[in-house]
Simulated assay, not measured.
Amino acid sequence: MDTRTRILEVTARLLADSPVGDVSTQAVCEAARVDAADLYRHFGDKAGLLAAVVDHGFKEYLERKRSFVLSDDPVRDLVAGWDGHVTFALERPHLYRLMYSSAITTASVAAVETYRLLTSRLERCAAVGRLRVSPHVAAQRVMAANVGVALMLITRPGTFTDPGLSHAIRDAVYGEILLPEDAAEPAGEAIGPTAARLGELLRRHPPPSLSPAETALLQQWLTALSDDSGH
Rank of each mutant, 00 (worst) to 15 (best):
R132W: 14
P93F: 07
A51T: 06
F43I: 03
E63R: 12
A110L: 07
F68V: 13
R124S: 12
F43D: 04
R141E: 03
G44Q: 09
V69C: 10
V147S: 07
F43G: 08
A36I: 09
L90S: 13
F68C: 07
T106I: 13
L117D: 08
L151C: 12
V54N: 08
V54G: 05
G48R: 01
D35G: 07
A52I: 04
V34Q: 06
G57Y: 05
A103W: 08
V147N: 09
S134T: 05
G148V: 10
T87L: 13
G148Q: 00
R124Y: 00
V79G: 02
L131P: 00
A111D: 04
V53P: 02
L62N: 14
V79A: 10
A138I: 02
V69Q: 15
T87E: 14
D83K: 14
V112D: 15
R64I: 04
A36C: 01
D45Q: 10
R116Y: 09
H56Q: 11
S67A: 12
A111E: 11
F58K: 04
R41Y: 12
D45I: 13
G129K: 03
V54D: 01
Y61P: 04
A89I: 00
D77P: 06
Q140M: 11
E113L: 06
R66N: 11
L49Q: 08
R97I: 06
G57P: 05
R33T: 12
S71M: 10
A37H: 15
A52D: 05
L49M: 04
D73M: 00
R130F: 05
P135D: 14
D77K: 01
V75K: 02
L151G: 07
E113P: 09
S101K: 02
S120N: 09
L78Q: 01
G81N: 14
L39I: 09
V79Y: 00
P74G: 09
G129A: 04
